[in-house]
Design a protein around this nucleic acid. Structure first.
Lengths: 230, 230
DNA sequence: ACAAGATGCTGACATAAATCATCCAATTAC
DNA sequence: GTAATTGGATGATTTATGTCAGCATCTTGT
């Protein structure tokens, strides 16, 4: 364990902390490789052996998983401050998702060994990762309940609200730019149904739909639309 | 930090390791309180402040979550060797689920502070918990895809196979004893639909349905029934 | 032992959502 | 600049599943 690695470790921890308190820390670049991806480029692919984890410095990514029958499903999206691929590293298995850039993305690459070293040395960072995992798990379970028990209308409203959270910077209302097909894939329905539901929301003045994207007008109203269970 | 706590710590780690390699370790009882629950009794309740985590020594439990509209949803089940409630402890928030005994259950209670002490002291145990969380997350994501894209028939087949895994001891075929209503709740459908699908499976000689429970006859055949996506 | 309440099952009917077929508008390719 | 492709929108129809109603069987409490 040389001095370089120790420094890197602390930088990595710093990067992690930044993910919770997003203060820019330029020094991180001195220690970790910065990679740039363009829209649609694959960051890693399901089934490949993980070489390390990524930390999103800026931009958004799309997690997809391919099922036995060959179809691909959008699982979730990742944004600035998120770490990618650490679940598979922890479990020492191949990547269980494909992650691709959604717009321009820049991320740090942390090699497997260094990542593990940090977790072994720095209890606080290890704790943070457990917390991220827990949070993710509880949220995914919540989504699961929604998928099981909400009609399409409610699931779509949920998706829009959650997406707008990811997209918004300093609470400016931000337009969500996905194709109807992608939205449909995310909530498990047909794109025609999404089109119809979006029109419904538009007619109810909850959103606007322009070519460049969907914009939420009435957050409260949309939240009300999510509340329906069977 | 006295000697007692150190011993307890190592016992706890031992209990954890047992969860992966289920060798009985009677000494654990010397260090942690053993609690007994009868069918239907609540182990902890959603919204309450967590006092610690539980480790299932024997028996099964049912995780449920209540949504805003007041309905309860079965999220998953837990069995021998599982830990309960650690996600909420890690996140320092109130319990996000209710857990109740499903049949006779005996579990160890590990107070919050001791649990955290172990995670701080014992890297290996901390790592195990991260792995459990990762595994759980990936599996829940997989279920999410199924809920989004599989018709009821496929979801039911999935549930039956997964339940039979939980229920089976030393690969004896084990009967699954849930009400149709509970099964329906788990996969997000109506109990009548479950009844019909089960009849379908019975007619196809994939399962038997007696009063005391469902028994899987043809695992391969059921697995084929899970394979259908939209 | 009996009543009362669950639980399981089946049929008839209603409905949300999928599918199929077009069409238009907007990008992208040539 | 025109053709080709992609994304968005709408209507007609079909289908899977939910809902409602009735009944039989089993379990539980007294």
């Amino acid at each position: 364990m040389n001095n370089g690695t120790i420094k890197r470790t602390s930088e990595f921890s710093q990067a992690l902390l930044n993910s919770f308190n997003p203060e820019p820390d330029v020094r991180t670049e001195e220690w970790f490789e910065l990679h740039q991806f363009k829209n649609g480029q694959t960051i890693y692919r399901q089934g490949n052996t993980p070489l390390g984890v990524f930390y999103i410095k800026s931009g958004k990514v799309k997690f997809t998983r391919e099922t036995d029958d060959g179809s691909r499903h959008i699982i979730r999206i990742g944004a600035e401050g998120d770490f990618l691929g650490y679940e598979d590293i922890l479990l020492e298995r191949r990547y269980s998702n494909t992650v691709e850039a959604w717009g321009d993305v820049s991320l740090f690459f942390i090699p497997r060994k260094e990542f593990m070293d940090v977790l072994d040395k720095d209890i606080k960072t290890a704790r943070r990762f457990s917390q991220m995992l827990s949070e993710n798990l509880l949220e995914t379970e919540q989504r699961l309940i929604g998928f099981a028990h909400k009609p399409v209308r409610g699931r779509l409203a949920d998706a829009l609200l959650s997406l707008s959270n990811y997209f918004k910077k300093n609470n400016a209302p931000v337009s969500i730019s996905l194709t109807r097909y992608e939205l449909a894939n995310m909530i498990g329905t047909a794109s025609e149904t999404v089109v119809r539901m979006l029109s419904e929301f538009r007619d109810e003045k909850l959103i606007t739909t322009e070519r460049k994207g969907i914009r939420i007008l009435d957050e409260k109203g949309l939240a009300r639309a999510t509340e329906m269970y069977n």
